[in-house]
């Protein structure tokens, strides 16, 4: 696991967007991906990947919470006593998650009902907590914001990829648009189509096990493409 922690310097370096800053965002997308490499934040994520729409809402929520809590914790890092830092961090995260929950309840009630308890579970999403511990407690708010953004996006991308396969193969839909299946409402009607007459949606894809299988295959592909991530032990 590559350590992205940057040691603080005595002299304040000016805020800029150079190579180091760009690495903070791009590193979590590939070499240090929260899900396929660090194995963080799987808990609250997989249950929402039955549809692209829910996955997108969840990804945006996690990016918001990740950036917000990173910035707040980083701004307070010198004032937080290290013995109670866990509880302080949890309260910061819980506050932001409550904001997300109330916002969704007000403006996207449909998604709010479908995501139900999994919005609350962003609090215990290990990636948020993990970034606070590993990065925000030791770096300036600006770098912490970039780090939160990178990790949030790295997490969101995996969510969307998993949701793409699960929704398409499981329900024949994408973002709720009916693409393939039996009946007139689908764009490709398997009852009348000559080419796709054999196609039946796989109900297992929306169940628990297939999320695991899809991620396993993703990890396989990712590590085959990027061999330095292979688990040697």
């Amino acid at each position: 696991m590559a350590e992205t922690q940057v040691l603080e310097k005595k002299v304040a370096t000016p805020i800029s967007f150079g190579k180091k800053e760009r690495a903070l965002i791009t590193d979590p997308l590939n070499d240090n991906n929260p899900i396929t490499v660090q194995v963080l934040g799987i808990c609250s994520a997989l249950a929402v990947t039955t549809g692209m729409k829910n996955a997108a809402v969840m990804a945006v929520a996690v990016v918001f919470v990740c950036v917000g809590s990173n910035v707040i914790t980083s701004a307070l890092r010198k004032a937080i006593p290290s013995q109670v830092r866990m509880i302080v961090q949890l309260v910061i995260i819980a506050t932001l998650v409550t904001v997300v929950e109330l916002t969704l309840k007000a403006y996207a009630f449909e998604s709010y009902k479908q995501l139900s308890v999994f919005i609350g579970l962003i609090i215990t999403n290990c990636i948020v907590m993990g970034r606070l511990e590993a990065f925000a407690m030791a770096n300036r708010p600006y770098e912490s914001a970039l780090d939160g953004l990178g990790n949030g996006i790295g997490y969101g991308i995996i969510l969307l990829i998993v949701a793409f396969f699960r929704e398409l193969l499981g329900k024949g839909e994408l973002f709720g648009m009916k693409l393939i299946g039996a009946g007139d409402i689908y764009a490709i009607n398997t009852e009348t189509s000559d080419i796709f007459g054999w196609y039946v949606s796989n109900g297992l894809m929306v169940q628990f096990p297939s999320a695991m299988f899809v991620i396993a295959v993703l990890i396989w592909a990712h590590r085959a493409w990027n061999p330095k991530l292979v688990d040697i032990s």
């Binding site: 628990f208 695991m212 299988f213 991620i215 396993a216 990890i219 292979v230 688990d231």
Partner: peptide
Amino acid sequence: PPAMRGLGMAFLLTGMMGM
């Protein structure tokens, strides 16, 4: 297979246990 070692297998096994 090397790329599946560790984490990949853990995911696959969890999926099968779920089934």
